[in-house]
């Protein structure tokens, strides 16, 4: 019985140790999926001005979340990824902003520095007003899908390939956040008609 007792203790410890070893987080599955979405979005977005590279700000995530797309080339543009976890003076110079769930406070404050023409993407379950983001991820049943906020997109002069529009999850028309329009779209250089014609052509 004593031998059994010792063996049982040692083996129980071994099983628990094995479990603890696996506690170290490795590659983030959900982040990789979301990074893939950003990669796809970059392919099917029409930007209001020519860009050599696409600078992507990842807000509120971990510093390896979007590694899978960093350095990728999309339409001749290199994707450059930077991770932001606080407000700073340099937060305003990006072409794409991805806001992870939990970064709502930063999002609300960064509205002030997000440049006109930038693509903003909100994570699924993001608690801030969704009408602030051009694109946002949503869980629909067992799937992770995305929806487009056409109003904010137009005020930002961002156009979409028809394939993106076709695949997007339909959403009821939302009330546009006036603050963001003021910041991003008030001096809109591209008319709604031009955006619509771009969409039609693609």
């Amino acid at each position: 019985m004593k031998r059994d007792f010792i063996f049982q203790k040692i083996f129980s410890l071994a099983v628990l140790s094995t479990m603890l070893c696996f506690m170290q987080p490795t590659l983030a599955k959900n982040s990789a999926l979301k990074a893939a979405y950003v990669y796809q979005f970059c392919q099917y977005i029409w930007w209001p001005d020519d860009k050599e590279d696409l600078n992507i700000a990842v807000v509120g995530g971990q510093n390896s979340d979007f590694e899978s797309i960093a350095g990728s080339i999309v339409d001749g543009k290199k994707l450059k990824v930077k991770y932001l976890n606080s407000l700073g003076a340099s937060n305003g110079g990006f072409d794409v902003y991805f806001f992870f769930k939990g970064s709502e406070d930063i999002f609300n404050k960064m509205v002030e520095v997000i440049p006109k023409g930038a693509l903003t993407i909100a994570d699924e379950g993001f608690a801030a007003d969704k009408s602030d983001a051009v694109l946002y991820l949503v869980r629909v049943g067992t799937k992770l899908k995305f929806s487009i906020n056409q109003d904010v997109a137009k005020t930002n002069s961002i156009g979409f390939n028809s394939r993106l529009l076709k695949v997007a999850h339909p959403v009821e028309k939302t009330t546009v956040n006036k603050g963001l329009i003021k910041k991003q779209g008030f001096n809109n250089r591209v008319s709604d008609d031009r955006v619509d014609s771009f969409v039609a052509k693609r």
Binding site: T18, C21, L27, L33, A36, Y39, T142, K143, L144
Partner: peptide
């Protein structure tokens, strides 16, 4: 087997997915 499996780094590439495959991917 567990130890040997763990020695392989988790590697996946959702970038190979098309947009249609991404929205149809079952996350549950």
């Amino acid at each position: 087997a567990i130890i040997s499996h763990y020695s392989f780094a988790a590697e996946r590439n959702y970038l190979d997915f098309s947009l249609e495959q991404l929205v149809d991917y079952d996350i549950y």
